[in-house]
Each structure stands twice: as C-alpha cells, then as structure tokens.
C-alpha cells in the first residue's frame, strides 16, 4: 500500500491531498491548473512549503529532495542542465556509477543516440523531454516521477515512449507516478488514476472506470477522446481500415497514411457521435449500429449519455435539448452513428 498526504497553500488554491493506492503505476489526472504538477513536485521534494507524508510499501520517503530517497523526477519543462550535453545531463544523474541498462534501453527506444553529444541548450522541446526522461531513469530510482513526460513529442514517438514505459514497469520493479491530462496516456500506462481538481482528489481507481465518471470527463479539455477502445484486429480495405475492438464491436475508420502502422487502439470524441431513435437510411456515415442508453448524467451546460453497444461502453456528449427531443431515458434503444473520419488512432 502506498499513501500520500499533502496540505498547504500553493498560491491559487489550497492543496489538500489524501491518497492511497496499490498499483505500481499511478496517474494524476485533471485539467490544467488542477494542482497535478504541484502535487508531483511536492513528491519530488521541490515544494518545501507543502507539508505531509509519503510512503511507498510502508517505507517513508521524505518530502525534501536530496540523496538517498530513491526517487527521480522529470519535470514538465524538462529543465536540462544548460551547461552540459545531453550525455552530460544523463550521466550526471548516475552519480558516477555506470549508466543503468534501463537508461541505455531508453536512449535506444527514444531515438536519442544521435543527439547525445548535442549541448542541452540547442535541443528542441521534444528532444529535451526525452533527455529529461532518460536522465531520470539514469538515476536508477525506485520511484519515477514524471510530469507530462511526453507532451511535446509527436504522436509516433509518443507511442514508442509510452510502450517503452509500460515495458519498463513490466520488466522491473519500478514504481511510476505520472501527471497527465491525456486520457489516452492514462489508459495506456496507468493501473490506477487519481483525478484532481483545485488541489483536491475527486476520485481514484481503475482508469477504465474512473475516466468514464462524469467528474473525470468534466476535467477533460473540449474535443478530447473520451471513448478509447483496445483493438483485437485491424485490416486495410481500400481507403478504410476495418477494426474489431477487444469486446467485439466492428468499426470502419478512415485509413491512416500508407507508411503508418495500423493502430492497436482507437479513440472517438464524445462530441463526434450522433444518436437517432430510428434506423436512418442513406447516410454517408460508415458506422451505424444499435445501442441501448444505460445512463444519463446532466453536467452543467451539457449532458453525458452513456450507452452500451454489444459489450462496448460509449460516452456521448449531447445538449439537454437533444436529450429531451429524443426522449432519451435509460433503457431506450437508439442507433449510434459515427463517421469513419471520427475514429482516430490513439
């Protein structure tokens, strides 16, 4: 059991965090300004103004940065040491010991080998983030703290980085706490997620459940991908890809460019889904299938409608007006309509 207690003022609001988790990978999730970075920086020992306690598997970790804590932190702004090369940054973290295999593997996986001799201050934002991530691994920590570690990376590289991180956790005993505002990242990497808002923990639990709660959905930026499906298969068919989700839903998505690999996860924004009470005829949308309303949750200016199509759960954002016009209620049968272009590889 791991636990974190934090209280104190951080300017905009008071931080009052009380968190318990069991998983090796915990995500701190929430909208910008929710206090995620403050919390992880406090864990990294950079916020002496906040008081509290932190323990991992019963071992207390002081909330004051320094040697011997077994913690390494990669901040959101990378903050490389500007007077050193990329290699110098990574090797400083090893404290004179040989570079750990994991750091070498990360250099390989994140395509950093060619950049090692570059001075840190000429690297691009994405390159800095990658070096900062490897630098944290080079410290051979027991607990790795990552603040939006791959936010500046382009999508293919980000996917590589995420699968490397997942692989890391599986192969080693590393614990990870990472901050993200991207549900895809959370679903891909985290085993548990805590949703933060204004310095407080709203809810904590398994990502698949927590991220579909209204509280978590409201923390998402507009146009985010609320529906993420793990794929069982995908195959090209002309200019579309026919995919089948792990729970058996078949979908038609527009094909990514030829050089891109076929996806193993797809996402659909809750705003992109249409509902109809009858079966529409002659629509261009490639995905038209039956679903049943399982719950309706009003939330401020909009309404979250949850549906079940086969075994796959969907979240759809509608206006209250639309819900009234269609007389939607839990249990009502509807048709779910989705353009091929609304399905994105994630």
């Amino acid at each position: 059991m791991n636990s974190l207690q934090l209280t104190g003022n951080c300017g905009a609001f008071n931080i009052v965090v009380s968190l318990q988790w069991n998983a090796r990978v915990l995500a701190l999730f929430g909208a910008s300004g929710a206090g995620k970075s403050t919390v992880i920086e406090a864990m990294a020992g950079l916020r002496p103004a906040l008081s509290g306690s932190w323990s991992m598997d019963g071992a207390v970790i002081p909330l004051r940065a320094g040697a011997g804590r077994g913690v390494a932190f990669a901040p959101q702004d990378a903050l490389l040491f500007p007077h050193l090369s990329a290699r110098g940054n990574i090797d400083l973290a090893t404290r004179g010991r040989p570079r750990p295999d994991l750091a070498n593997a990360a250099i390989e996986a994140l395509e950093l080998a060619a950049l090692l001799d570059q001075p840190a201050n000429v690297l691009s934002g994405g390159e800095r983030q990658r070096v900062s991530f490897v630098r944290a691994l080079a410290a051979a920590p027991r607990v790795l703290l990552l603040d939006e570690p791959f936010s500046a990376l382009d999508w293919p590289l980000r996917q590589k980085a995420l699968s490397f991180l997942v692989d890391c956790v599986q192969r080693t005993k590393l614990h990870v706490v990472f901050v993200s505002h991207d549900p895809i990242e959370v679903l891909a990497v985290a085993e548990e997620v805590a949703v933060l808002e204004a310095g407080k923990v709203l809810c904590c639990g398994a990502p698949a459940q927590v991220l579909h709660s209204a509280q978590a959905l409201d923390a998402l930026p507009r146009g985010a991908v609320e529906n993420v499906f793990v794929l069982e298969s995908a195959r090209r068919d002309g200019d579309v890809v026919l995919v089948r989700t792990a729970r058996g839903q078949e979908l038609v998505m527009a094909a990514p460019s030829a050089e891109c690999a076929l996806p193993n996860r797809v996402g659909v924004s809750a705003e992109d889904v249409l509902l109809a009470t009858g079966r529409p005829e002659g629509v261009s949308a490639q995905n038209v299938f039956a679903a049943r309303v399982s719950s309706i949750e009003p939330a401020g200016t909009h309404t979250w409608v949850r549906l079940l199509a086969g075994d796959e759960a969907w979240t759809v954002r509608l206006t209250r007006r639309a819900v009234q016009q269609l007389a939607l209620q839990p249990g009502v049968q509807v048709t779910l309509i989705l353009k091929a272009h609304s399905i994105r590889a994630v």
């Binding site: 950079l46 940065a65 320094g66 040697a67 390494a72 932190f73 400083l92 404290r95």
Partner: peptide, 19 residues
C-alpha cells in the same frame, strides 16, 4: 529550480553545488 531538479534526481547537495 534547476538546482532543485538536480536534487530531485537524487544528487547530493555537494554534487549539485560542484556540478
């Protein structure tokens, strides 16, 4: 903050000062 991040990597205060 740069110094703090160095401490956050687990470096000792002396090493952060010299390096």
């Amino acid at each position: 903050r740069t110094e703090a991040v160095a401490l956050g990597l687990g470096l000792s205060r002396a090493r952060v000062f010299w390096k």
